[in-house]
Design a protein around this nucleic acid. Structure first.
Length: 949
RNA sequence: GGGCGAUUAGCUCAGUUGGUUAGAGCGUCUCGCUUACACCGAGAAGGUCGCAGGUUCGAGCCCUGCAUCGCCCACCA
């Protein structure tokens, strides 16, 4: 690199803040100086966040912008607190999701992945990864994420690969991962098994069809079943599965059917005779009270079949067409078969009734195809054993959820957890580290071989490994064009790819399936830090500090990390789980690319700046709550950045070519009121912000700084400082040190939320300040409000001064005094008169009143043609000769009196309440008494004003 | 069928140990180009805090019930 990035936008600063001219430059400044890399100090408590790795499927959406914002705020805050801080960025290969996008891309070329073959297809996906990884990285940077990019990890990097294999082997050796034939969720479009969590439930209005199954009354000589008029009527939402029925079940307590248990019925059309069984699962109330039992395609039915010792019939192919078991319906798609079967049944008189029925159907999260429950050999992870430590850790408070209500959601799921189907029939992902020995188990390995020359539509050859070899197929051809399953074969599980089987055979076939993408995600808190190697890094950073992610993936991800973290590391992965909500668009719709309801975070950044977006995201809702992102709010964030910029521009231009020394102590009692006030306020703010940040109330913290910067510092302190700097009769100290000090504090407190504009300003400001030890705001100390600067009297006095100015302004506006015209005013301040006298010049300038006369007693003020405002602690009298309207003033005062009397009445009532006097804390009672006195004094003052009219 | 969240100004939302007259941004109205900022300044209007009970000296906040909306979990065909 030849040129050093220039951070400072030296004066004169531009008239308005321009994020586009700033952000990239400032980011380069940080990154090139290595501020994102932690400085490890064994003596210090580290802070570490592992970033939830976005999917490589595409570009970042607004949800990622929220993740980045929250995490970057925490990270920058801790870095400024001096904690060694590491934020690990990463990217997720996102198995099924990425495979789908690449397949879609292939489809545009008229290709399927089978046309390419596994190796070629994987190459295509890697090309995709190569394209999107850098884009994603740059998007994080645009948002200001101060992650350690030298540490970026991809889930398919060697480290995480080793972690996956090591974990799988450990689980296998411990008997916690097993292969079994179970009922799983099958997506016929993705052609893979799914976990329960990858199935969404959608409402659908379907029909409940009542089908008559004739009861078998006897058998003829050849053993053929005979039927009469008797029948059992079953109700179903999936008539196409009737071909897979193996029984009819009724509730054992259902008097209607009691006597039929033990008899048989004859399935129409396919004429299979099946028994009537009794099972609790059949609800008397539902439908006809008679349940058709289809154990191959329904989890409940499967259990009934298990209990009754019934066979399990699989009637469907993996593409959701009916198989040969379906007789005349074989080969039809499940929905086509439904139509045909219903028609047949109706024609044959077996369809008794059709009624509308609302139900929930399971669809694939990825493609929204209706999933098919079916029996299949898959790999499962036993969850109960893993879950218990995860439950204990949370119950013991070693892991805390923010907001804590999610703790119950987590526990409820963990306590009812079921085994996790982890194998996926995909090509993109971590291939399961299991091999089968063709030398040892050649008869047990069923191979499906595709002839690449014949095209994908051609029927594949199927046979055992040994059979195909006997037909002259080579091992290499099987490896390249075949898929296989070895449900009877002995698995060889390894971390390293084995060369030979334990018996010495060299013909090994690795399991075709890959692992659920969340398997590797579950290892993320330690696989990113080097595990399974026991690196120094791992020891230092693990357990990490905070896991920040969306509440929608508590089960998919958070729970798995906790379980696998405890399992592998024997320690929790993090002590805090901070969960954010879903970002919706301004109409409350979920953001979705396909629906076109999304908001591109980079477009927002382009238009308003990253700081504006970050401020908006963090203040638009509380922790754990969903938010609607409205452009108007981002605009407000942009305006705030500009406000800050201009306040800084003023301070810096006032300092001019010189420099200032910051005050190193609270101003003494002789210092100007406003100095004592603002110093006290900014320290109070820092204490509040520190407290809020510790409680993860990041949005509230940001909001408070906003209020302070705009409503106190800019509106009042700077305005007064102008008077001091420019006024002719200035005598006291220069306000510049205080201006610089307060601005500096604000920049520090705001930096985690709005890093760009604050750094840009701070670089310019710090040049104007003597003895700044810090080189960049990103590594400057965050205020904790520990200076002890506090001046309650100054805060009270200044509040009064502000109220007086407001009262005069109010009168001016109400009486429509021309803006340019100065008016005279009397301020009766009693004991505060000397203090007000000191502030007289400010009142004059800020209220455009001249002369302002500070008097002790309101009685000394003019009474003719005056507007009166009675405040707590002062009375303002404004002579309005020429503008005066007696009736209007009377109305004004009467309304104020009425309001004040109502209030006094309320307080008096409260104080008269014996219960209140007896039970309320003395402090509260005293406050109320003071209020009552003050309100009564106001009323008196107002009445006096009224009397004078 | 369980569970959770939301319901506060026209709109979008804050309001964390129950305690002054419930706040902000945007929008609205009236003024204003006052040399930091019109991405601004000054002033103002606007809320029975979803409904009904209860606890309490005191409830937007705690309890109970209900309503509407949203979400999560769940094998009733």
């Amino acid at each position: 690199m030849t040129q050093q990035p220039e951070p400072a936008n030296t004066p004169p600063m531009a008239k308005s803040y321009d994020p586009r001219a700033t952000e990239d430059r400032v980011y380069h400044f940080w990154e090139s100086r290595g501020y994102f890399k932690p400085r490890i100090d064994p003596a210090k408590q580290p802070f570490c966040i592992i970033m939830p790795p976005p999917n490589v499927t595409g570009e970042l959406h607004i949800g990622h912008a929220l993740t980045d914002t929250v995490e970057d705020i925490l990270v920058r805050w801790h870095r400024m607190l001096g904690d060694p801080t590491l934020w690990v960025p990463g990217v997720d290969h996102a198995g099924i999701a990425t495979q789908n996008v690449v397949e879609k891309q292939l489809a545009k070329e008229g290709l399927t992945r089978h046309d390419l073959g596994r190796d070629e297809f994987e190459k295509r996906v890697w090309q995709w990864v190569g394209r999107y990884r850098p884009i994603i990285g740059n998007q994080h940077r645009r948002l200001g994420a101060s992650a350690d990019w030298s540490h970026e990890v991809f889930t398919l990097d060697d480290g995480p690969q080793a972690a996956v294999r090591t974990t799988f082997k450990k689980l296998y050796d411990d008997g916690l991962v097993y292969r079994g034939e179970r009922m799983i969720n099958w997506c016929p479009r993705c052609r893979t098994a799914l976990s329960d969590l990858e199935v969404e439930h959608e409402d659908e209005l379907r029909s409940l069809w009542h089908i008559r199954y004739p009861i078998v009354t006897g058998h003829d000589a050849e053993g053929r079943p005979q039927t009469g008029d008797e029948h059992m009527t079953v109700a179903t939402t999936r008539p196409e599965t009737f071909v897979g029925d193996v029984a009819v079940a009724v509730n054992p307590d259902d008097p209607r059917y009691k006597d039929n248990v033990g008899r048989t019925v004859l399935l129409p059309v396919i004429l299979r005779e099946i028994p009537i069984v009794a099972d609790e699962a059949a609800e008397v109330e539902f439908g006809t009270g008679t349940l058709k039992v289809t154990p191959g395609h329904d989890p409940t039915d499967f259990e009934i079949a298990q209990r009754a010792g019934l066979p399990i019939l699989n009637v469907m192919n993996l593409d959701a067409t009916l198989n040969k078991e379906a007789g005349p319906y074989a080969g039809m798609d499940r929905y086509e078969a439904r139509e045909v079967i219903l028609r047949d049944l109706e024609e044959l008189g077996y369809l008794a009734k059709t009624e509308p029925h609302e139900m929930q159907i399971g669809v694939c999260t990825r493609c929204h195809t209706v999933v098919e429950p079916l029996m299949s050999w898959q790999w499962f992870v036993n969850q109960r054993a893993l879950a218990q430590p995860g439950i204990d850790a949370v119950k013991a408070g070693r892991i805390k959820f923010v907001p804590d209500r999610f703790e119950r959601v987590y526990l409820n799921w963990m306590e009812n957890i079921r085994d996790w189907c982890v194998s996926r029939q995909l090509w993109w992902g971590h291939r399961i580290p299991v091999w089968y020995s063709a030398d040892d188990d050649g008869d047990k390995i069923i191979v499906t071989l595709r002839d690449p020359a014949a095209g994908v539509t051609a029927e594949p050859r199927v046979g055992t490994y040994n059979e195909l070899r006997a037909q002259g197929v080579t091992h290499d051809e099987i490896l390249r064009h075949g898929t296989w399953s070895g449900v009877e074969a002995t698995p060889i599980v390894g971390i390293e790819t084995p060369e030979r089987s334990p018996k010495g055979g060299g013909h090994l076939l690795q399991e075709n399936d890959v692992l659920d993408t969340w398997f590797s995600s579950g290892l993320w808190p330690f696989s990113t830090l080097g595990w399974p190697a026991r690196t120094e890094e791992l020891t230092y950073w693990y357990p990490t500090s905070v896991m920040e992610t969306g509440y929608d993936i508590i089960f998919l991800w958070v729970a798995r990390m906790i379980m696998l973290g405890l399992y592998n590391m024997d320690e929790i992965p993090y002590s805090v789980v901070y969960l954010h909500g879903t970002v919706r668009n301004e109409h409350g719709q979920r953001m979705s690319k396909s629906l076109g309801t999304g908001v591109d975070p980079l477009e927002v950044v382009e238009k308003f700046g990253a700081d504006a977006l970050r401020y908006t995201l963090i203040t638009s809702s509380g922790p754990g709550n969903d938010m609607r992102l409205a452009e108007q709010r981002v605009e407000a964030g942009r305006n705030f950045a500009n406000k800050l910029w201009n306040a800084a521009r003023f301070v810096i231009s006032m300092i001019g070519n010189g420099t200032v020394r910051l005050p190193d102590a609270m101003p003494g009692p002789d210092a100007p009121l406003e100095d004592r006030w603002i110093m006290s306020r900014v320290e109070g703010l820092a204490r509040g912000v520190d407290d809020l940040m510790r409680r993860f109330e990041l949005g509230e913290a940001a909001r408070q700084v906003y209020e302070f910067v705009w409503g106190e510092f800019a509106d009042w302190y700077i305005e007064i400082a102008k008077v001091r700097v420019r006024g002719e009769n200035q005598r006291g100290p220069s306000p510049l040190p205080v201006l610089a000090y307060v601005l500096d504090r604000c920049l520090r407190m705001l930096h985690p939320v709005m890093p760009f504009v604050t750094e840009e300003i701070w670089q310019a400001l710090s040049q104007k300040i003597d003895g700044v030890g810090e080189e960049a705001l990103i590594v400057a100390a965050f205020p904790r409000g520990e200076s002890g600067y506090a001046d309650a009297a100054a805060e009270r006095d200044m509040t009064l001064l502000i109220e007086i100015v407001r009262a005069i302004r109010n009168i001016r506006a109400e009486k429509k005094v021309e803006p340019a015209r100065l008016i005279e005013a009397y301020v009766a301040g009693g004991a505060d008169a000397p203090m007000l006298e000191a502030g007289r010049a400010y009142i004059e300038i800020l209220a455009r009143a001249k002369p302002v006369r500070i008097i002790a007693d309101a009685a000394d003020a003019p009474r003719d043609q005056v507007a009166t405002a009675v405040l707590e602690g002062a009375t303002v009298v404004v002579p309005l000769a020429g503008l005066f309207d007696v009736a209007a003033e009377r109305a004004r005062l009467e309304k104020q009196i009425a309001d004040a009397e109502a209030e006094a009445g309320r307080i008096a009532e409260k104080l008269a309440n014996e219960g209140f006097r007896a039970k309320a804390p003395a402090k509260i009672i005293a406050t109320e008494e003071e209020r009552l006195a003050a309100t009564r004094a106001r009323i008196e003052g107002l009445r006096a004003g009224l009397a004078d009219l």
